[in-house]
């Protein structure tokens, strides 16, 4: 299968008052179409930078980012983004929030079709009946569900998520993992998920990429073979334990390297 996302030899440094800060160094990532790619790595290693490069929000100093066989030169309408902060617009209802990307991507789409599309997604994530509510009237988990709907309402090829469940409690988070699987079953998309939660990366990912400490390169790639159907109980099997151990060790190595460099 063709790779939908291909990151080839990407190197990037931020220009700061104290000189350039190298963040990514010769990073290579390939994500086949329809796959779910989880990315873990030490804090501050450049994961958010990676999402901004894939989204075309910035250009790498060196190397190339390819999406769907096209070189990424700037933002494109075929990506969806979700962040740790759901960033819903307080002056819009939930329904109007979800519709927002369609206003940009498909301005000629009739209002009724837009609303029907948004309602379909809202009911998929269990938010039917909340479409006329304001974001402030929803719980954190519900806001994040609405934010997910907004990220995929325009049927993007790639969904980029930067720690979307990071601020939620453990049970709400597990609910949302399940929601992600349900959504993918109905709406296939290729996904890049940045996370700090190794269990999340194994439960959701088809592959887990471990980034080294800053400047980040691909340190390790784990191909997830989930035992049985993707249900939470699977995380307590020996197979998952092994994978989690492997990832834990890799993170330790990644952190070790960043400590050496800091010293």
């Amino acid at each position: 299968m063709a790779n939908l996302i291909e990151i080839k030899g990407v190197t990037h440094a931020y220009r700061t008052p104290n000189g350039p800060l190298p963040v990514l160094e010769n990073l290579n990532v390939a994500v086949p179409e329809g796959e779910f790619c989880a990315v873990v790595g030490p804090s501050g290693c450049g994961k958010s930078t990676l999402t901004r490069l894939i989204a075309g929000l910035m250009k790498p100093d060196e190397g190339e980012v390819w999406l769907h066989g096209e070189l990424v030169k700037g933002p494109r309408k075929t990506v969806g983004m979700a962040f740790q902060n759901p960033v819903l617009l307080e002056w819009r209802t939930i329904l109007q929030n979800v519709i927002l990307p369609l206003e940009i991507v498909a301005p000629s789409m009739p209002k009724r079709d837009r609303e029907a599309r948004a309602l379909e997604l809202l009911s998929m994530v269990g938010l039917e009946g909340f479409e006329t509510k304001r974001p402030s009237e929803l719980s954190g988990g519900m806001r994040q569900r609405a934010s997910l709907c907004r990220a995929i309402v325009h049927k993007p090829d790639v969904l980029i998520m930067d720690e979307p469940f990071g601020a939620l409690d453990a049970f709400t988070r597990e609910d949302l993992w399940q929601t992600m699987h349900d959504l993918r079953a109905k709406e296939p998309f290729t996904c890049v998920l940045i996370t700090h939660d190794l269990r999340e990366s194994v439960f959701l990912g088809d592959q887990v990429i471990v980034l080294s400490g800053r400047p980040a390169t691909t340190q390790y790639v784990l191909d997830v073979t989930y035992p049985g159907p993707r249900v939470i109980d699977g995380l307590y099997t020996p197979e998952c334990s092994d994978m989690l151990h492997t990832l834990r060790d890799q993170i330790r190595i990644a952190q070790g390297r960043s400590e050496e460099e800091a010293a």
Binding site: R52, L57, V79, M81, F83, L89, V105, H154
Partner: peptide, 18 residues
């Protein structure tokens, strides 16, 4: 304005005016 607010529209190629 938090950068994420800008990014949800900018990543779709929306203009500064939009």
């Amino acid at each position: 304005l938090e950068p994420e607010y800008r990014d949800i529209l900018r990543s779709l190629g929306a203009s500064r005016y939009t």
